Amino acid sequence: MARSSTLNVAVIGVGRMGADHVRRIQEVVSGARVSAVVDADAERASAVAARAGGCAAYTDPAAALAAADVDAVLVASSSPAHEAALLAALAHDLPVLCEKPLTPDPASALRVLEAEQRLGRRRIQVGFMRRYDPEYVRLEQLLRTGRLGRPLLLHHRHRNVSAPPGWASELLITDSLVHEMDVTRWLLGQEITAVTVLRPTPSRDAADGIQDPQFVVLETDGGVIADAEIFVNCGFGYQVQAEAVCERGTARVGDGHAMVTQTAGRWGGTIAQDYLERFEDAYDRELRAWIDSVRHGTATGPTAWDGYAAAAVCAAGVRSLTEGGRVEVELPERPALYG
Results as ranks from 00 to 15, higher is better:
Ser176Trp: 14
Arg288Trp: 03
Ser293Met: 11
Ala109Val: 05
Thr193Asn: 08
Leu321Pro: 00
Val48Asp: 04
Ser320Phe: 03
Val313Gln: 05
Arg266Gly: 00
Arg150Tyr: 00
Leu152Thr: 04
Ala81Cys: 06
Gly339Phe: 02
Leu90Met: 10
Val112Ile: 07
Leu187Glu: 08
Pro200Ile: 05
Ile230Thr: 11
Gly301Cys: 08
Leu86Phe: 01
Glu277Asp: 14
Val161Phe: 04
Pro202Arg: 12
Thr270Lys: 13
Asn8His: 14
Ser169Asn: 09
Tyr132Glu: 11
Gly189Met: 11
Val253Tyr: 01
Gly53Phe: 06
Leu198Glu: 15
Ala311Ser: 15
Ser320Ile: 07
Phe236Asn: 12
Glu114Phe: 03
Met259Asp: 12
Arg123Ala: 06
Val112Glu: 06
Val37Gly: 05
Gly265Val: 11
Ala56Met: 13
Asp41Pro: 00
Gly53Asn: 11
Phe279Ala: 05
Asp205Gln: 14
Val161Gly: 02
Met1Lys: 11
Gln262Val: 15
His82Arg: 11
Leu152Tyr: 00
Cys246Tyr: 04
Gly301Phe: 06
Asp41Gly: 02
Gly31Pro: 02
Arg33Trp: 01
Thr174Trp: 02
Ala316Asp: 02
Glu27Phe: 02
Leu86Ala: 08
Gln125Asp: 01
Ala50Leu: 13
Pro101His: 09
Gln141Gly: 02
Asp105Cys: 10
Leu321Val: 07
Ala42Trp: 08
Asp71Tyr: 08
Glu116Phe: 05
Ala88Thr: 05
Glu83Asn: 06
Val313Asp: 03
Val9Phe: 05
Ile210Asp: 03
Leu153Ser: 03
Ala84Cys: 01
Ser30Arg: 15
Arg138His: 09
Val29Asp: 05
Gln125Ser: 14
Pro200Leu: 11
Tyr338Ile: 07
Met181Lys: 01
Thr145Met: 11
Glu243Thr: 15
Leu142Trp: 04
Gly18Glu: 09
Val216Cys: 03
Gly209Phe: 09
Gly31Tyr: 12
Leu187Ala: 09
Arg185Pro: 00
Gln262Ala: 15
Gln141Asn: 12
Arg295Gly: 01
Cys55Phe: 05
His158Tyr: 12
Leu94Gly: 03
Asn160Lys: 14
Gly18Thr: 08
Glu280Ser: 13
Ala32Asp: 12
Val195Arg: 07
Ala244Asp: 06
Pro104Ile: 12
Ile124Asn: 06
Ala289Asn: 12
Ala32Thr: 12
Arg204Ser: 13
Cys55Ser: 09
Gly127Leu: 10
Val329Ala: 08
Thr298Arg: 15
Gly149Met: 13
Val260Gln: 13
Gly269Asn: 12
Thr220Met: 08
Ser320His: 08
Leu97Val: 04
Ala64His: 04
His21Asp: 04
Asp133Pro: 01
Ile25Ser: 01
Leu177Gly: 00
Pro106Gln: 13
Val183Ala: 04
Ser46Arg: 15
